[in-house]
């Protein structure tokens, strides 16, 4: 399977680039932290309210952070025109996307796992009882954000005002992810936690639909 082996090599490259500087991870972690604190200043929730609104705010923070984090994903390749070399190196451009979206999902998950304990403390929400389900929702949601975001960052990298453009393209597209993952998380963090399998399945469907679209159109997204 040349697709998978290519992807693995490229993923290694993405991870090495990031872990040499750790720029993206540190800035994203700090960004989410700042947003969460600002949210709690803006609404100063009681513990009942924060059960209701907290997960939504967390997802909003993740969404904003992702729309910033996904910026450099293709811009980084522009400074030395490394994208053309990548295109020449692999037979299927889908593997470039696959590697980038795997790396982005991983970065988002690392950020979220670092943020969760702080979120629990700030908003006074016990997250331990349903942690495994919460991690599943975080994984499926982050995967969806990364798939759509990686595709769109390939588009926005080729336009003017790219820093502003990516959130404008991405955030409306991710409405379904925000609605569903926030609702599922609220139900999970309730006093009587409920696992909404329908929502989890919906997130899976979202990921699958956009992954298929990306697979079909990846060649055109990277056209010179």
């Amino acid at each position: 399977m040349s697709l998978l082996s290519n992807t693995a090599v490229l993923l290694g490259k993405e991870l090495r680039t990031e872990f040499r500087s750790r720029e993206l991870l540190t800035t994203t972690v700090v960004f989410i932290l700042v947003v969460l604190i600002l949210f709690s200043f803006a609404i100063s929730p009681t513990s009942e309210e924060s059960r209701e609104f907290g997960p939504g705010l967390l997802w909003l923070a993740i969404l904003f952070a992702a729309s910033l984090m996904l910026q450099p994903c293709f811009l980084r390749e522009q400074s030395n025109d490394t994208l053309s070399s990548l295109r020449l190196a692999v037979s299927d451009p889908f593997s470039i996307f696959l590697a980038k979206l795997a790396a982005n999902t991983l970065f988002l998950l690392v950020t979220e796992v670092l943020m969760l304990p702080l979120f629990a403390v700030f908003y006074n929400i016990p997250i331990l009882p349903e942690l495994h389900y919460l991690l599943l929702v975080l994984f499926l949601g982050s995967l969806g954000i990364s798939i759509a975001g990686t595709a769109l960052s390939a588009i926005s990298a080729q336009a003017r005002m790219r820093e502003l453009l990516l959130p404008l393209l991405l955030l409306p597209l991710l409405t379904p992810v925000l609605v569903v993952s926030a609702t599922v998380s609220v139900a999970l963090l309730d006093r009587q936690p409920i696992v909404q399998w329908k929502g989890i399945a919906f997130l899976g469907v979202f990921d699958l639909v956009f992954l298929t679209a990306l697979w079909l159109f990846s060649e055109y997204l990277l056209e010179e």
Binding site: A148, A151, L152, I155, L169, L173, T175, P176, V205, F206, V209, F210, A213, F217, Y220, L221
Partner: peptide, 13 residues
Amino acid sequence: LFGIFAFIDVPLV
């Protein structure tokens, strides 16, 4: 390409 992604998104929204 964006138009295609947007249209696919509509039923999901």
